[in-house]
Design a protein around this nucleic acid. Structure first.
Lengths: 300, 300
DNA sequence: CCAGCCCATCGGACTTCCCGATGGGGCCAT
DNA sequence: ATGGCCCCATCGGGAAGTCCGATGGGCTGG
């Protein structure tokens, strides 16, 4: 099996046709056509249906595509490993972690947890949870950080930290003056949701769907800074991991609402591919740093 | 990059020489020699040092080898996926789990958790912990079960169950007559260790190294049945997850010693590769069955 | 119904691939 | 030391693969 065949197949899947794929790859159309024919002969199944308008994947082709992508991805890692290049570590994280926690961890890692440089090229991708999971499964990420709030399908993960969840608002917010705030009182105020799949699911988990259905919600994805600025100007309240707003609380830009019910803390979890190769040691160093920084860690 | 090159390289690494590799692969010696030359030209590094007695891997070759193996492994999965074959699920487990827990889970899985057949070809490998981890990282296992007793390096994993640890002995054992047994009293008796890395580490964790250093230990790996039979005949005591000896305790073949100190329960954890493809659904069904069967599960 | 696009196929030039044969070099027993 | 033996690289030739441009059939939309 030649990876050129897989490259051709992926290109056809992405460009919608053999001619377009050939142009993208720098081959003649007839060459790509022949490559796909050989691929199909090799696999023993037909992976494309040729039509007048282009080519679309058969069912077998749909099954093949993720494997083809992974195979090309692996070949890339293989070449890097053989050449002895610095390992590449593609990290994905939700914005609330990228905003406040991850930079410190990465900095501590790079400036040497104990003097040892990790020697990995880090590429950080900030995206909402669903996007991260998709990218991770597509092989576009080596290491992914998420929150674990106990909902969603079980996946292999390693717990790297814990964090309280806090309800925050501007210091001038009406609720900020109260000694305690009940869940029902929240209904009257605009609720800014930073990340679907984290904050909002935590709320559902805690208060039931009713709260979200009743409360006015504003979704503001992609800029934690903008969301916090909005909150700081008195536009609503939000629920976030404490570490995301540590600075803002310290500086007095935001205040924590004293909710009558305790909100369950979330775990920060990491997931990575078991066979990262050289990048594995960088992951271990990074997790060690994260573990050191965990304010709620068990002294086990 | 042609996978034939990688196959040739792996064969040379495994057989210690080009001639032997060629014979194993059914090529002429000169062909394998040329393939390796092309591989090195393609990668831009030399991966073998040729000697009079054979060929050994260079440093680059050592880095390359696991990637080459994974690549061939992936190609195999790719072919199966494209052909639409039943997914293959290679499961690894320590013997204490294979002895009593895993068969029930697999049976419940196969006879349909809710009527749905999983349609996966299961291959079960029973090996001690270290062997499982090595096999898993070498890509020879898709899914691995282990105990988590909190020691060892952090890895991504999913908790699938919990289990008490019990000290067991024959009903006629001197300690079996006592109302409670202290840790010091154990020192006088032969201690049968089933699996390095699980039972023994649990003991170290609980009682400190001194107990193990002081107690007479007998290591009996590879046959849980033989170990339990020995215990049943009065030859020593052992510490095992309760589920391993559920039947023996019920039948009265073994009795649980009532230790004065509580022994921390262990978690049963699973680890699998994030991109299993079609086998993923089989894993999920299996974990659901395991979760149902967990006697100590949180009603979360 | 025709222009335009897409894809399969063909023939030819070129390269790659594989084999058997040959030869150099190290290791070991004689 | 030296010859036998094994290992590997290289060479030449035949087979197969690879790529290209050209050609033609089929589908689509105007």
């Amino acid at each position: 099996m030649d990876s050129r065949y897989l490259r051709a197949f992926v290109a056809v899947a992405e460009h919608g046709g053999i001619s377009a794929a050939a142009q993208a790859l720098g081959y003649a159309q007839s060459s790509v056509s022949a490559q796909l024919k050989r691929l199909e002969a090799d696999l023993g199944v037909s992976v494309l249906v040729r039509a007048g308008t282009g080519a679309v994947l058969t069912e077998a082709g749909t099954r093949l595509l993720p494997y083809a992508r992974e195979s090309l991805e692996l070949e890339e890692r293989l070449r890097r490993a053989a050449r002895g290049d610095r390992p590449r570590l593609r990290i994905g994280a939700p914005e609330s972690l990228a905003h406040a926690w991850l930079p410190e961890v990465l900095a501590a890692l790079e400036y040497g947890a104990g003097g040892t440089r990790t020697g990995a090229d880090v590429a950080l991708t900030v995206a909402p949870r669903r996007g991260l999971e998709r990218a991770f499964e597509a092989g576009e990420l080596d290491l992914m950080f998420e929150y674990d709030n106990g909902v969603g399908p079980v996946r292999p993960h390693a717990v790297v930290g814990h964090c309280r969840s806090v309800l925050v608002a501007a210091s001038g917010h009406p609720l900020a003056r109260q000694e305690t705030v009940t869940a029902e009182q929240l209904l009257g105020y605009d609720f800014l949701v930073a990340e679907r799949g984290c904050t909002s699911e935590m709320l559902v988990d805690r208060f039931g769907r009713d709260l979200l259905a009743g409360a006015q919600q504003t979704l503001l994805q992609g800029s934690m800074a903008a969301l916090l600025r909005l909150i700081g100007h008195g536009h609503g309240i939000t629920l976030l991991p404490e570490l995301t707003v540590t600075r803002e609380l310290r500086e007095g830009e935001l205040v924590e609402l004293r909710l009558s019910e305790r909100i369950r803390p979330v775990s920060i979890v990491a997931q990575w591919h078991p066979r990262l190769g050289p990048a594995e040691s960088a992951v271990r160093a990074l997790l060690a740093v994260a573990h050191q920084a965990d304010p709620l860690r068990d002294p086990d």
